[in-house]
């Protein structure tokens, strides 16, 4: 379980997070929605301690990752997979090496085991046969799917997806959503999904959090969110559905 407590973060004199409180329950999918620029990516980066809070903290299974360093931080991070909004693939490596990277670094798998797992994972995201391509030779959507593969290949206990379907065609987007649901169910993982896609939010999420003006403006199960009175949330959902 991930506990975010009174998280504050500003860049220069621009406050982005102004006291975020959020519990992310184990073995469930929590979807974070919010306007572009509301700080969703900043929030997700705090969960992995890529950014450090100005105040407040983030606890992962009771241990404070937001102040961890060195080996302790490394150990905490190996439980995670993060799928970056812009994929952030290593452009000096081909698709195979990108996806194999977490395994090569930490799994202790043999070459054959790595090969098998990478191929399996690439097939799951519909990218089989692209092993030898370099990121610069892929389309944005393909890169995104490789990014998803790299985030899940080592079977982490917690997966964070930063807008895994933005910019994809509806069919691929729906495949990725199915994949997110499927991986979560099959492995009983804790998932955090950031998205703009209102339909996907209700399909994927066990819990939904609405980030607005630096705080969690609304939180609940899809049913509760459907009936939440917050006017900002209502507008977000209504506009999202209208497309």
């Amino acid at each position: 379980m991930i506990k975010i407590e009174r998280l504050y973060k500003s860049f220069g004199n621009q406050p982005v997070l102004r006291g975020v409180d959020l519990n992310i329950p184990q073995g469930k999918t929590t979807v974070v929605i919010g306007k572009s620029g509301s700080g969703k990516s900043v929030l997700i980066k705090h969960i992995l301690a890529l950014l450090r809070p100005d105040s407040g903290r983030v606890l992962v299974d009771g241990r404070e990752i937001s102040s961890a360093t060195g080996r302790e931080l490394g150990r905490l991070r190996t439980n995670f997979g993060l799928c970056f909004q812009n994929a952030a693939l290593f452009d000096s490596m081909n698709v195979f090496d990108n996806v194999a990277f977490p395994l090569v670094e930490h799994s202790g798998f043999s070459r054959a085991q790595i090969k098998q797992r990478v191929e399996e994972t690439l097939t799951a995201v519909g990218m089989e046969g692209t092993e030898d391509k370099f990121p610069s030779e892929l389309s944005g959507g393909m890169r995104k799917r490789v990014g998803v593969a790299r985030a899940i290949v080592h079977r982490p206990q917690i997966i964070l997806y930063d807008e895994p379907t933005t910019g994809l065609d509806p069919i691929t987007a729906s495949t990725i959503n199915d994949l997110v649901i499927d991986v979560q169910k099959r492995l009983g993982l804790t998932c955090v999904v950031i998205t703009h896609d209102v339909a996907a939010t209700f399909r994927v999420g066990h819990y939904i959090a609405f980030l607005h003006e630096g705080v969690i403006n609304a939180y609940g199960t899809p049913d509760e969110i459907e009936n939440d009175p917050s006017p900002k949330l209502r507008e977000f959902i209504r506009r999202g559905r209208a497309g």
């Binding site: 980066k45 890529l50 490394g74 952030a88 693939l89 290593f90 000096s92 977490p102 930490h106």
Partner: peptide, 21 residues
């Protein structure tokens, strides 16, 4: 150039998330 490009495209962050210094 190489490290700078890796920084601005979040590849350095990606290394960190995979617990690689």
């Amino acid at each position: 150039a190489e490290l700078g490009a890796m920084r601005v495209t979040e590849q350095i962050d990606a290394l960190e998330t995979m617990a690689v210094e």
